[in-house]
Design a binder for these strands. Structure first.
Length: 513
RNA sequence: GCGCCCGUAGCUCAGCUGGAUAGAGCGUUGCCCUCCGGAGGCAAAGGUCAGAGGUUCGAAUCCUCUCGGGCGCGCCA
């Protein structure tokens, strides 16, 4: 890069630079390679010293204060309360939560938020579907609601309603009234029932939210009306065909959007705009919306709506992280995920079958913008094909060596005690392992800044692999105490980084397996 | 038709704010257990980075087009 500015070939520039470099005890030698790369060879001692630092910093290693406590909101999952969570929501939950943990590790003050679409047409549809089930109808009956939800779970809701069960969601109990014609009662019960189901799913997944924001509250608090008024005042609305439109084309959309329908109801679009204005007013200068890519068309629309408010909101606000679709396979066959039909892979099915750790790992292991195949057989397997076990095993293995040190050698050593002579760690494997450990803090920065939690999964797989190689070729529990303790210091540093990294993914680091 | 995303080894994927011989796992082939947990390790074979142009000293990476695949294009959310 500097070559262009300096006006001479890269190789020549590199030579000139190397001539002027000062001597340093940490640098063993300097070489120029290829078209003009300057390679610094660090002494083994300086590389390996990272292990001591890691143990001193412990759980804090890799964390930084770049965010300086700045408020960030991450909205994710935000599933409609019209059915159980499926794998797609699971991917959103795993990615969203990992992003939150990463941002926290970078010193941001993160709020996790879930937006409940508990108003609007799909809830009417849900109510009709439950009512139909309550009246003994099935999806194939002629009088079944046109776009009714056909899943079996609707029947469960109807039965619970008829039996007068009480469901608790959002710290509020709702009891089924049993009357199949009381639409308001069915609606309230069905929403509470499905919301409780989702809460249980998320709990099983280890994901917790700070704020549950209800769409209905936007209507109740007049925020939708206020947004409409503001858009009207700003002159971006017009009436046509009995509906009210917003000129989103003024802000880069390919066509204008209806905000109020002929029947007087609002489309989902308007509460979305009102909701995001509310986020802005709550002081979140950074907002990340994690959603499925099937919602990508809302990005332009919401941003356009926000611009039309003239509220001083920056053009590219908010940020979006859109994950691509998930396909589930079992025995090499695709398992269809259809909310309408009966066969339905719920998030809870997955957690029950393959466990929380593996589910979270596999759902974050790929770049968000590439499609993901979730192989149930692979996720279940407890062999080296399975990266989750491979990484956790490295952690457990180190703990096992420490147990052996205590039981057979009678030496008690804490996981964060630095000991031994690190200068004795002169093997290539040890240097490389130390270099890999040293990369971790920068990785935490990059993964957060680029919103790429999958980087963590790859890093940990690599680290675990390097450790297993080292473990196999050189014993740590040798007679030479200074060497033994130094190697164990490196082991413990690996253990700490694996534990820290897994924590950012919401995955456990077991001491034995 | 228009918009967004993807197309890297047999398979699943890294690498993409341009730089050195494109990496890893699985699978395949051949090895290693009196040895801190074989839930492990070593080695080999395997690639026109979908294709074609362009920008650049230099492109898997940036730009354009073409071809494949997914998603979206409702007064549904």
């Amino acid at each position: 890069m500097a070559a262009k500015a300096a006006g001479c070939p890269p190789r020549q520039l590199a030579e000139a630079l190397v001539q002027r470099l000062p001597e340093s005890p940490a640098v063993a030698k300097v070489e120029i390679a290829g078209p003009g790369f300057i390679n610094f060879f660090m002494t083994a001692e300086s590389a390996v010293s990272i292990a001591g630092e890691i143990l001193q910093q412990g759980e804090k290693f890799g964390r930084n204060d770049d965010g300086q406590g700045q408020k960030v909101q991450v909205e994710f999952v935000s599933a409609n309360p019209t059915g159980p969570l499926h794998v797609g929501h699971g991917r959103g939950a795993a990615i969203g939560d990992a992003l939150c943990r990463l941002l926290e590790a970078n010193g941001y003050d993160v709020t996790r938020e879930f937006y409940y679409n508990d108003a609007g047409a799909q809830i009417d549809n849900l109510t009709l579907s439950v009512q139909a089930r309550a009246k003994g109808l099935g999806p194939d009956d002629e009088s079944w609601p046109e776009d009714g939800y056909r899943g079996e779970y609707i029947n469960d809701v109807a039965e619970a309603y008829l039996k007068g069960e009480t469901v608790v969601a959002d710290d509020r109990g709702v009891t089924g009234k049993g009357a199949p014609d009381d639409m308001a009662a069915i609606r309230e019960f069905a929403v509470a029932y499905l919301r409780r189901e989702q809460d249980l799913d998320l709990k099983a997944f280890g994901v917790e939210f700070d704020v549950y924001f209800l769409e209905s509250s936007l209507y109740r608090d007049g925020k939708v009306e206020a947004a409409v008024e503001r858009l009207k005042e700003n002159g971006y609305t017009y009436e046509e065909g009995g509906a009210m439109w917003l000129r989103t084309t003024e802000f880069g959309d390919d066509k204008d959007r209806v905000m109020r329908k002929q029947d007087g109801g609002y489309t989902y679009f308007l509460p979305d705009v009102a909701y995001h204005l509310d986020k802005w007013q709550r002081g979140f200068t950074t907002v990340i919306n994690e959603q499925g890519a099937d919602h990508h068309s809302t990005v332009t629309r919401v941003r356009a709506g926000l611009q039309a408010l003239n509220a001083g909101i920056p053009q590219g606000w908010p940020d979006y992280v859109l994950h691509q679709m998930v396909m589930v396979t079992r025995s090499g066959q695709e398992v269809k995920i259809s909310k309408r039909a009966g066969s339905y892979v719920t998030l809870r099915d997955l957690i029950d079958e393959v466990g929380r750790d593996a589910t979270r790992f596999f759902l974050t292991a790929r770049r968000v913008d590439s499609q993901l195949t979730f192989d149930i057989d692979l996720a279940r397997s407890q062999t080296n094909d399975n990266p989750v076990y491979y990484i956790q095993y490295a952690h457990a293995r180190i703990c096992s060596v420490m147990r052996k040190l205590a039981h057979e050698h009678g030496i008690q050593r804490g996981y964060n005690d630095v000991a031994g002579d690190l200068a004795r760690l002169t093997l290539d494997e040890e240097k490389e392992l130390a270099n890999q450990l040293a990369k971790y803090p920068e990785l935490v920065r990059n993964a957060a800044a680029n919103r790429e939690p999958h980087l963590l999964t790859h890093y940990l797989r690599e680290l675990a692999g390097q450790f297993h190689t080292y473990y196999n070729s050189h014993k740590a529990l040798v007679d030479d105490a200074a060497l033994r303790d130094a190697r164990l210091t490196l082991y413990l540093a690996v253990r700490q980084v694996i534990a820290n990294g897994l924590d950012l993914l919401g995955i456990s680091a077991p001491e034995e397996m």
